[in-house]
Design a binder for these strands. Structure first.
Lengths: 132, 132
DNA sequence: CAATTGATGTAATAACATAACATTTGCAAT
DNA sequence: ATTGCAAATGTTATGTTATTACATCAATTG
């Protein structure tokens, strides 16, 4: 499954996220795109919806923000569950994957006959630089 | 660390959550407590803040809702990372703990010298009954 | 060209959360 | 008992995040 050609709005939103230092809220993205004609939140949310679907952007549930996938070119959906470490001081996000974690979680849900659709793993804390 | 005596508002909020079938939003809790004199969101959020601190209530980040801890009497904070399976159809929540998952995640953050404060693991999908 | 589909534009509103400030309550120290 | 403090509460207003509803536009296809 490859990423389709992005539309104009999708490209604009994606570019903003890619150039950002860290995660951005939808409204922050909106503000950054006012000059490009964006006027309403929905323009951002609709683009984000597609970008999430394509796996090129992640949503950070615990901080209501969005971040470009750390694996440009690859399809993140194929890496198993994505985990994030989010620095509460500087906002920097580290993305990682751990197959053993995936395996344990999936073993648990299988035991419950639970059918997983979307899994969130987010660790909030302080990055090395900020903890010092 | 034992749970202190709850205040009036804290007790009211906690009782609502305990009697609920599943997670509730802060505003749903507010509505259920109008008869008991609640008028403003802050009354709910302030109580929730304490209940979260005491570990008797959990916040589900991915659905902006709150749920009573599944281990009444025990202190949930001592169980390590709490994970949730949330049924998107019926809203039911299952709470579980997996020490191996904790171990893997903590090993990863240690490697990054990241200092974790709060970790979220939420699996959304369909429970056995709803998947049928 | 008509019909369908997906993308976009716009306004309004819903849902979630906090800031700021005033007041009250519980309780320890004197 | 009274003072002083910390925690809890009450209230209004506002800030932030997300969606509904409806109109329009563009590309594709039968």
């Amino acid at each position: 499954m490859t990423t389709p050609q992005l539309t104009k709005n999708q490209s604009l939103v994606f570019d903003v996220l890619e150039k950002a230092e860290g995660p951005l809220s939808a409204y922050t993205i909106l503000d950054k795109l006012r000059d490009h004609g964006f006027r309403a939140p929905l323009q951002v949310y609709r683009a984000l919806e597609k970008l999430l679907e394509y796996g090129v952007v992640h949503r950070l549930e615990s901080i209501n923000s969005f971040v470009a996938c750390a694996h440009p070119g690859e399809n993140c959906h194929s890496h198993g569950i994505v985990a994030f470490a989010i620095c509460e001081s500087c906002g920097q996000v580290m993305e990682f994957h751990d197959h053993e974690v995936d395996h344990r979680l999936m073993a648990w849900v299988r035991g419950q006959k639970f059918k997983p659709e979307k899994t969130t793993i987010e660790i909030r804390g302080l990055c090395e630089a900020c903890a010092a």
